[in-house]
Design a binder for these strands. Structure first.
Length: 906
DNA sequence: GAGCACTGC
């Protein structure tokens, strides 16, 4: 069947190539040449102006196409290795680093002389040497008095008395060395590591730090975790008169509010380019805009276009990757134009459409515009589409690119503006048929970038030490540390508290603020409270602080260089969340977070050599590392059939597309020709994953749509329903087990949670008592309401059938039958279709029950391959529900004689 | 008996 789909895809491609477009070929060619001439003229003109130092508008070369193609091909090849080579788990990483540290330690021991040179300080830091020395001794002493527990990855017996005790340190190190090498005898990697050392040495030398010996002559090794940084570069701020800026803001306060707003608008860097920009928009259909942070592009460009009359023939859409951005920017613009939000200026996000008939400037999330495509495939009501923050490459923006590029061909009146960061501009330009690039400078403060001199074995410890180092040596200003997840943040918080405890007035107060998305809202508010005079704030954040939220007052950024990233293996259909090194683009973005309100400093816990050689330039776009089932369904329902040749900017792996087609076919959303079926059309109405939407559509048959949409809503919020604070884990677990009485399975348990919450009239108190996140539940309610509305639209009656759990389970199975698994003798499971060994996730209510057959919501790879959210299944259902997918032999209970029911590992 | 970054529809 799949082959049939593929063959069809291929045929379409052939058809397309020889389609009637040929006729218009020569005409459009002529136009293109004319266009080219005009571009050339403009470029010449621009170049002249550029020389005068006023503005930059550059033309793109066409010659890069081939190069680009080669890169694409190699990217595709790399995809195969993505799970094995490029990403590696944190454990492996730490282990490797640990070995490296051991190696270093051995060198230490063999060459005692080295110990006395151990402290290497950059010249900048020499001044503060004495001051630091005192404070480090103090911190060291106090922190060890405070911890009689095992320090995080600290050897047991370092310098117990608080003073410097080289002898003891030496013996501990020696002991560690012996312990490890007793078994190993020798290190087979020594040679490789020596070579690496050498290479790293070469790299660090470039940045100079001669005379280090002088620096350490009068310095004792007091704080062995001291980290040395090298100031490698300064990320330039823009040439901008800050005094003038503040001055003008000051002056504008005196005027009336609206005058002040207008005056401020004129002070934005973009204002000087207004006329040039409008000219360029008039001349070209597609324009790539490079507007740096603070240039005012998001708020101003739509206004300029409105003033120039583009709104006479349709709305101006401006897409944002995030809801908050769409809301806040539109509010600002409404204020500047002096209109009420929701009238001329509005925003449209999921659950909230704040627009009206009058609306001409519409800010929206990118996913929302994508949804609008479904109802209006040519975007007829828009005259301009501006894709903002395009460099973030969200799944939705990537699809939007292909779609808007396509419609721009037959809608010459539609203007496209793509706004991106500097680095990607050329790529965007190439993709949009060499669209001109328009550059607007921003307002940024310079950021000093420091690298470590040597790789750090334990980045968490290094980050903590660095933050303390900053705290005692650097002028006031808050610190932002990027960590990978909740657990790590909690650990870091504990260690920091230990180390600063009891220091009293000896050092300034250190306020520790954790922040991650799953943190309850009331605790999140803490990071926005202004830092009291004399104190310093340390923000421990996940990637959320990289783009999603901005914290004022951050002056120092500590970047260990890791992030938790989702990747998808199309071969097995398994998603995994792995700690991976960040990209250079990401590192720059992180560094930039310190320069928002004044000059900043960024401390990277890796070497300049690592940065140059080990980090990718850009993060792999989401479209290349995700399950595409939803994307494929959306595109198919937009009438785009030839997916293998859809004009993606970075095409996803073909395997992932095929996997998605295969799944949609199995769900009967596509027929064997790869065409959308009636079921598929209905499924596409629901903004959830295809398996969930199939489950919803099928619930009509089993008369349990009310229950199913509750389950679907709960499943689509994912993992943040149950709150599990570190100190009350037992209570939280018990509370959760209450919903599992009768071993009904996780899906039904979720339904119970939702219904119980509803019965308490959506009580917040109830949530606290049951360790459930209120925020997630409210979200589930919103999603459920939306799904209920959509059910009406596809004419499915709302019915409930709570007493018949089998009906509900059958609906679930109808959506999730490809995710079925059978118990093995050893207590593990094997997936029915792919014979893959998997396990029940311990958080499941059925973890102890071990049903013979199970259907699961998703597979995640952590320490093992786990099924999350599972429900028991009767094997005959599989054949009944999906006869095209399972045959009797698949579900024949071969093991039934060997292992009767209930004999599982009890 | 384990542990989940961030968005978005």
């Amino acid at each position: 069947m799949l082959m049939e789909i593929l063959r069809k895809e291929g045929e379409r491609q052939v058809k397309r190539r020889t389609s009637p477009d040929e006729d218009s070929g020569s005409e459009s060619e002529e136009e293109r040449l004319k266009d080219q001439r005009e571009k050339d003229e403009l470029v010449q003109h621009m170049k002249e102006r550029d020389a005068a130092g006023t503005r930059k508008l550059t033309e793109q070369k066409l010659t890069r196409k081939e190069e680009e193609e080669a890169v694409r091909r190699s990217n595709a090849a790399e995809q195969d290795d993505i799970h094995s080579l490029r990403k590696f788990s944190r454990q492996e990483y730490l282990k490797k680093r640990e070995e490296k540290k051991l190696e270093e330690l051995r060198d230490d021991i063999e060459d005692e002389q080295y110990l006395f040179e151990g402290v290497k300080l950059s010249e900048v830091e020499q001044r503060d040497l004495r001051h630091k020395k005192e404070l480090y001794e103090l911190i060291k002493k106090r922190s060890e008095e405070a911890d009689n527990v095992n320090e995080y990855r600290m050897p047991d017996a370092y310098d117990q008395e608080g003073g410097v005790n080289q002898e003891k340190r030496f013996s501990v190190a020696m002991q560690r060395y012996r312990d490890t090498h007793a078994e190993e005898k020798m290190n087979p990697f020594a040679e490789q590591e020596a070579w690496e050392e050498h290479q790293i040495g070469k790299a660090t030398l470039k940045y100079g730090s001669k005379n280090k010996k002088q620096a350490s002559d009068d310095y004792q090794y007091v704080f062995e975790d001291q980290i040395d940084f090298i100031k490698a570069s300064v990320m330039d701020g823009d040439k901008f008169d800050y005094d003038e800026m503040e001055d003008s803001i000051e002056k504008s306060k005196a005027k009336s509010a609206s005058e002040a707003l207008q005056a401020e608008r004129k002070k934005l860097p973009i204002y000087a380019y207004r006329d040039e920009l409008l000219k360029a928009v008039e001349k070209y259909q597609v324009l790539v805009i490079v507007g740096e942070t603070g240039s005012g592009k998001t708020t101003q460009i739509p206004q300029y276009l409105h003033e120039a009359g583009y709104t006479k023939h349709g709305m101006i859409a401006c897409t944002q990757p995030r809801r908050v951005a769409a809301m806040s920017v539109s509010a600002r613009v409404a204020q500047e134009l002096g209109v009420k939000l929701g009238h001329e200026v509005g925003y449209s996000i999921r659950f909230e459409d704040c627009t009206s008939d009058k609306t001409i400037l519409k800010y929206m999330t990118d996913g929302m515009l994508l949804r609008e495509f479904l109802g209006e495939p040519d975007l007829a009501s828009y005259s301009v589409v501006m894709v903002d923050e395009a460099h973030e490459r969200t799944l939705s923006t990537d699809i939007l690119f292909g779609l808007v590029k396509d419609i721009s061909r037959f809608r010459p009146d539609l203007k496209l503006l793509i706004s991106s960061a500097t680095l990607d501009a050329e790529k965007f330009s190439d993709y949009f048929d060499s669209a001109p690039i328009f550059k607007i400078p921003g307002r940024r403060y310079p950021v000093e970038i420091h690298f470590t001199k040597a790789p750090e074995a334990d980045y968490l410890d290094a980050a903590i030490v660095t933050s303390l180092q900053i705290h005692v040596t650097q002028p006031p200003g808050d610190i932002l540390i990027f960590l990978t997840g909740q657990e790590e943040i909690e650990t870091a918080e504990e260690i920091l508290k230990h180390r600063t405890r009891g220091l009293g007035t000896k050092i300034a107060e250190l306020i520790i603020c954790p922040i991650y998305a799953n943190l309850p809202t009331e605790l999140q508010a803490k990071i926005f409270e202004p830092t009291p005079e004399g104190a310093r704030k340390v923000v421990l954040a996940t990637n959320i602080a990289e783009t999603s939220l901005t914290i004022d007052g951050i002056k120092y950024v500590i970047d260990p260089g890791f992030v938790k990233m989702k990747s998808y293996n199309p071969k097995t259909g398994m998603e995994s969340l792995l700690v991976s090194p960040i990209s250079k683009a990401s590192a720059m973005q992180r560094a930039g977070r310190s320069g928002r309100t004044g000059p900043g400093k960024c401390f990277r816990l890796y070497t300049a050599y690592n940065y140059q050689n080990d980090l990718d330039d850009n993060t792999v776009p989401e479209i290349q590392r995700t399950n595409l089932a939803n994307v494929v369904l959306t595109l198919k329902s937009l009438g785009i059939h030839d997916l293998l040749h859809f004009d993606f900017m970075d095409p996803p792996p073909a395997e992932a597309l095929l996997k998605a087609l295969e799944l949609l076919f199995a769900l009967s959303a596509l027929n064997k020709l790869g065409e959308l079926t009636k079921v598929g059309r209905r499924m596409a109405e629901f903004p959830v994953d295809p398996m969930l939407s199939k489950m919803i559509v099928v619930s009509e048959k089993y008369k349990c749509s009310e229950d199913i949409i509750s389950i679907a809503a709960m499943l689509s919020i994912g993992n943040s329903i149950f709150y599990r604070p570190k100190d009350k884990q037992v209570h939280a677990d018990n509370a959760r087990l209450n919903f599992h009485t009768g071993n009904v399975g996780d899906h039904i348990a979720l339904l119970k949670v939702y219904n119980s919450w509803k019965e308490t009239n959506y009580s917040t108190q109830w949530c606290y008592e049951n360790y459930i996140q209120v925020r997630s539940m409210k979200r589930a309610r919103d999603i459920r309401d939306q799904l209920a509305g959509l059910l009406e639209r596809v004419e499915i009656e709302l019915t409930t059938n709570s007493s018949d759990l089998d009906a509900i389970k059958k609906s679930i199975t109808s959506g999730f039958f490809p995710h079925s698994a059978k118990l093995q003798k050893n207590g593990s499971y094997r997936t029915v279709k792919h014979a893959q060994t998997v396990h029940i996730h311990p958080s499941s209510g059925l973890a102890q029950v071990l049903p013979r057959w199970a259907v699961y919501h998703e597979l995640v790879l952590t320490t093992k391959e786990y099924m999350r959210q599972i429900t028991e299944l009767k094997p005959e259902w599989l054949v009944e529900i999906a006869p095209h997918y399972y045959q009797l032999k698949d579900v024949e209970d071969t093991s039934s004689k060997k292992m009767p029911r209930g004999e599982g590992r009890a």
